[in-house]
Design a binder for these strands. Structure first.
Lengths: 258, 258
DNA sequence: TTACGTCTGTCCACTTGTGCACATAGCCCG
DNA sequence: CGGGCTATGTGCACAAGTGGACAGACGTAA
């Protein structure tokens, strides 16, 4: 079909996804025969509202997926980012239901995929596999809850800083985020000119620099200072809930930062 | 222990909760021996962040529970309402994990309860039971996603109207909501004076009246006109996802409205 | 019936964010 | 090297929401 697809994934060389890497060898062996690995480009749509959810996508490496809620204006609102700490598609619903949101590749890169039916069949055979996916589902829920609260009470400035940090933690690139002001504004649900102004104020304070199509971070601590704590709250929940579950050297979204 | 608790719940007289009423007789029979029914008063805390989630609570009749996300200021932000269309506690996580949010009784009334372990054991024995809870989990997720988007882009006026409608649909009382301006402001995450002003403008337009501690709806259509469509979007997802699953005369949050 | 505590309506000065407009800068492509 | 597209920086008038203050209304309890 497609030269990019490599059908085989040896257990010895698991995809660079923390969820898959957390699985015990026995659990991963249940999934491995059904896991495929390929590359998705930015803005590629994984699901649209109403689509039958049949495949779970695991972002690997610097890939990033995002949940977009369609709006009456046609403006989609970005809700949560999912990177190599997790997966999208049928995590909570267990698949075979119409998607509610749009799910879209934000930053392109490798994705591991498995058919929901195969995953569910494996979950029926292994309590520990079931357990780890339930734990991740809980973390994802926490992430959305926190976003809801964040959108209700935090300033655009705080949310801008938070978003840049969250994106960097997931891609592993601690110095830049490939994003235009327009894109940033859209995902924050604000006007473009205001997003530009916020970035300008950060720039004036030496926190970051702007390039055409990218944001370069100059002072990560300064950025943390200007962000709300939502990101950290979610990170703590990830660590608490997934701690001790077949621990690997990598922990959840925070893996890149100490 | 407590005289309010009635340990027995005959299959013939199921608690007034749509999720429980949707279960097939066989599935309900698996749960019935473990279901208790009692009354909770307003502001009663069901879970606080970090609590071990062990019990699922099903609001019955006009009872309403709500998920609150704690904030650095000590101000909790209200995220989603759950009434007789659903349940709270371990729905997504399948229990035995620390709660992320505070879960609180908003409007007091009867609640059916079951220990998560009993529910999970029953789910292991019945695919259809598993299926219906996965479907509800998906609906709850949709609800939170929509809230996230709503908080990002809709005005306080729209959200106020939406919230009043959502509360009425769940309690079944189509004419009033027992809420002070202060409470309304808190749950919207805004200042009290602004909430009062919004209510005043609605009042001036003949949409509602205000009483000490309550909001009286005078013109439901007018209220719908002033609300964003978030409520309807979620309702449609409920109907689509739960349609045909052991249908009863009652459908999801919308049951009270045609 | 009165007293008290809480809820409500409204004022004001101020901050945050909107939406549009337009000049300019960066960059890819021929 | 230069044209043209898109991204960026900024100005402005306006709308939305904040937070504190305070008078008065309501309703419960004694």
């Amino acid at each position: 079909m497609d030269a990019r697809i490599s059908k085989t994934t040896e257990a010895g060389s698991r995809p660079a996804n923390n969820l898959l890497r957390r699985l015990s060898p026995a659990d991963y062996a249940l999934l491995a025969p059904h896991v495929t690995l390929d590359v998705a480009g930015p803005n590629e749509l994984l699901y649209s509202p109403g689509d039958d959810v049949q495949v779970v996508h695991f972002p690997c490496g610097p890939s990033l997926a995002t949940f977009l809620v369609p709006n009456e204006d046609g403006r989609d609102v970005e809700t949560i980012l999912v990177g190599r700490e997790g997966a999208v598609g049928g995590i909570v619903s267990e698949g075979f239901l119409p998607a509610y949101t749009r799910i879209c590749v934000k930053f392109g890169g490798p994705f591991a995929r498995i058919h929901v039916a195969k995953l569910e069949a494996a979950k029926m055979r292994s309590a520990s596999l079931r357990n780890i996916f339930a734990r991740y589902a809980d973390c994802m829920l926490a992430q959305i809850f926190q976003s809801t609260a964040c959108n209700a009470i935090h300033s655009i400035e705080q949310r801008t800083a938070k978003w840049i940090i969250a994106a960097m933690e997931r891609t592993g690139d601690e110095s830049s985020v490939p994003l235009t002001h327009e894109q940033l504004a859209t995902l924050l649900g604000v006007g473009r000119s205001y997003a530009s102004r916020v970035l300008q104020s950060f720039k004036a304070e030496g926190v970051l620099d702007t390039r055409r199509g990218a944001i370069l971070v100059r002072n990560l601590d300064g950025l943390h200072l200007r962000a709300c704590l939502c990101n950290d709250a979610v990170k703590m929940h990830f660590e608490e809930v997934l701690r001790g579950v077949y621990p690997t050297e990598e922990t959840s979204p925070s893996s890149a930062r100490g």
